[in-house]
């Protein structure tokens, strides 16, 4: 499916300021036109705010953010309620570790795959049909990532983080935004997460990733957008970004590159 047209997000003349300080000022940017795109920049560059505006959890002061789906349709994301994002295939992992304090790991995964039909207040057999339709996929993820006990509530920060990514994967996104997906994960789990991201991208999902671990960015991304002080300074392949003087000066510092 590599040559299939991908879903992408177009950001046009988007601005956002807090207390008079401009945190995002993007003239034009297309996210997701390559399988895996990295969003890089120093703290305060506006990466997370931009991601939040894409998800409409923060409204832009000006501008337009649209989704160009792989089927050719166009949707304005800045007017879409949050709960409809996933139905349009736009899914984001959370930067801050978050979970359902009363639900087990298996619950979380079943919640992700359940449709409105399954969640009807009176529907006999819904749980059984939900489980049988998704059991293989859920079991394969559980085996792959080796949760100690899927019927327990996730306890460690790493488990919660991983569970958050798995929830996103189970939503079958066409665009997946990952905000620091590997922060706090042990190395062997990070390797598995990156492997899954690669597979997902190869299957047609456009992945946009914000990450401070530069090795992850250089290794994983097909293209990197570099942001600083709210603006997009350049967009290029990882090697060019890595060698760029501005990037070195503003972000990488001496000794990198």
């Amino acid at each position: 499916m590599g040559d299939q047209r991908r879903s992408s997000i177009r950001v046009e003349q988007v601005q956002k300021s807090y207390a008079g300080r401009m945190v995002v000022d993007v003239d034009e940017l297309v996210l997701g036109d390559v399988p895996i795109e990295g969003l890089l920049g120093p703290n305060g560059a506006g990466k997370t705010t931009l991601m939040r505006m894409v998800m409409n959890s923060v409204s832009p002061d000006a501008g337009r953010i649209t989704l160009n789906s792989s089927d050719g349709s166009t949707t304005t994301l800045s007017s879409l309620p949050t709960h409809k994002m996933a139905h349009h295939g736009v899914v984001k992992s959370t930067q801050v570790i978050t979970d359902f304090d009363q639900l087990t790991i298996l619950d979380s995964m079943l919640l992700a795959v359940a449709t409105t039909g399954h969640e009807f207040p009176v529907r006999p057999g819904a749980e059984r049909s939900l489980m049988s339709a998704n059991e293989d996929e859920i079991r394969s993820y559980l085996e792959r990532f080796g949760f100690a006990d899927a019927t327990a509530i996730a306890m460690s920060a790493g488990e919660k983080k991983l569970l958050d990514i798995l929830r996103c994967l189970l939503l079958k996104p066409s665009i997946l935004l990952l905000d620091e997906p590997t922060a706090g994960l042990p190395d062997e789990v990070t390797a598995k997460v990156l492997e899954v991201i690669r597979e997902l991208a190869a299957d047609g999902t456009s992945v946009v990733i914000v990450e401070h671990d530069l090795d992850v960015i250089w290794e994983l991304c097909d293209e990197v957008t570099f942001m600083a002080e709210g603006r997009v300074l350049m967009k290029d392949d990882p090697a060019s970004i890595r060698a760029n003087a501005t990037v070195i000066e503003k972000y990488l510092g001496a000794g990198h590159g």
Binding site: M85, T98, Q102, A114
Partner: peptide
């Protein structure tokens, strides 16, 4: 699944909405 949705809303509504 309905009960699970209710518990999810009670536990973390913004997360449930984002799903």
């Amino acid at each position: 699944p309905y009960g699970r949705l209710l518990i999810a809303i009670g536990s973390n509504e913004p997360l449930a909405r984002s799903m």
